[in-house]
């Protein structure tokens, strides 16, 4: 049962603790090794080792407080904004340690974008919301290029047809689902490699949720996507791989079909069948 394959050539450190399933993949975009995250004295993440494959969707599931969001935020160093938060271990993006002292979080976050639980468009126009990232990173050299980026991002986010006639109106005036797609458009406008999504549908109705899920599916052709979700159906629908977290530990990881049809670990099975969590 505890088949932990360590592919040759991966310079991994210690073996992952207690994790069931294969944490390693062939061509990882992100590699996390023995990651611990502390809030003050409290250990929120305990020795997580995990690879995230390129152009795949991986979903993190688990009961509230299991550390899945904390781990997600460690991937683009959003935890840096919390003073008492401390991280140990190693997270590499394309082989580069993102916690190395010389790393600047600004370009890192341009490469690893994030979509949040609650839609949080800026109180600016729809156009400015999408154009903000490209502007601060200097992605467009002129107005026409910027227009192109905005148009394409909105099209990719499936929002263009709904907002093309009102780009100058405030983004906060859109419906919840539209706002979340606007936030996705804003994230992909800076052409990131990885998109982190922290329960992106928890504030949305089922129709808006379906649209976002469809979008995630399409975006996975181009981006590596990590999604935290409370909905197991959602995880089953959108992701290639699924990771189950419990009390800060990564309990089990595997192909989504495998996890949901035939979980190896008892805790995963109990959670998926709704016996606790």
């Amino acid at each position: 049962m505890n088949e932990v394959a360590t592919p040759a050539g991966l310079e991994s450190g210690a073996l992952p603790m207690d994790t069931v399933g294969n944490v390693y993949v062939e061509s990882p975009r992100i590699t996390a090794r023995n990651v611990d995250v502390y809030y003050g004295d409290k250990k929120a993440i305990d020795g997580v080792t995990l690879d995230i494959a390129e152009k795949q969707v991986i979903s993190f599931i688990g009961p509230s407080g299991c550390g899945k969001s904390t781990f997600l935020r460690a991937l683009n160093r959003m935890n840096d904004t919390i003073d008492i938060c401390r991280m140990e271990g190693e997270i590499k993006l394309d082989g580069e340690d993102i916690y190395a002292p010389h790393i600047d979080v600004v370009p890192l976050r341009a490469r690893v974008g994030m979509v949040f639980q609650k839609p949080n468009p800026f109180p600016k126009s729809i156009y400015d919301n999408v154009a903000y990232g490209p502007r601060i990173h200097g992605l467009a050299t002129n107005r026409a290029e910027l227009d192109d980026i905005v148009t394409q991002s909105l099209e990719r986010a499936g929002l263009w047809d709904e907002v093309k006639d009102r780009l100058t109106q405030p983004g906060t005036g859109l419906s919840g689902g539209q706002q979340q797609r606007l936030c996705i458009a804003r994230t992909i406008a800076v052409s990131p490699e990885v998109i982190l999504m922290d329960e992106p549908c928890s504030a949305l109705d089922p129709i808006a949720t379906a649209k976002i899920e469809e979008l995630i599916h399409e975006l996975s052709n181009q981006f590596t996507i990590v999604i935290v979700t409370h909905s197991m159906q959602q995880a089953a629908r959108v992701s290639n791989r699924t990771a189950y977290f419990h009390l800060g530990k990564l309990v089990e990881v595997g192909e989504t079909g495998e996890i949901f049809s035939n979980p190896s670990h008892e805790m995963t099975r109990n959670y998926i069948t709704g016996r606790f969590g």
């Binding site: 959003m78 974008g113 979509v115 800026f122 936030c183 994230t187």
Partner: peptide
């Protein structure tokens, strides 16, 4: 100012 606005800006890579 809601923290979500700060998150949004930091999330797209604003300093």
């Amino acid at each position: 100012v809601p923290p979500s606005i700060r998150d949004a800006a930091l999330g797209v890579g604003a300093s």
